[in-house]
């Protein structure tokens, strides 16, 4: 049953591919967009919208 040896190699290879894809995309994203845009998410945005219109 040599098949399982190939399956093991395939698992190693796929892991590396998924990992590599994430890292490459991550670095690409970080260098394409500014940090301000990337970390602009704020908690409770939708609550804040209603808060503004109902102040007081």
């Amino acid at each position: 049953m040599e098949t399982w040896i190939y399956i093991e190699y395939a698992a190693w290879g796929l892991s590396a591919l998924f990992g590599l894809h994430m890292v490459v995309d991550w670095l690409k994203t970080d260098s394409t967009y500014s940090e301000d845009v990337l970390t602009s998410s704020r908690e409770g945005e939708l609550e804040a919208m209603t808060e503004d219109s109902h102040k007081g």
């Binding site: 845009v37 602009s40 998410s41 945005e45 939708l46 804040a48 209603t50 808060e51 503004d52």
Partner: peptide, 23 residues
């Protein structure tokens, strides 16, 4: 105090407080 209805339809996570990219 206003009671906030967070169930309304027009919410998409993009608000006026500076979120350019949200979930």
């Amino acid at each position: 105090m206003a009671q906030t209805d967070i169930t309304s339809a027009e919410r998409d996570g993009m608000g006026p407080h500076g979120t350019k990219v949200g979930l």
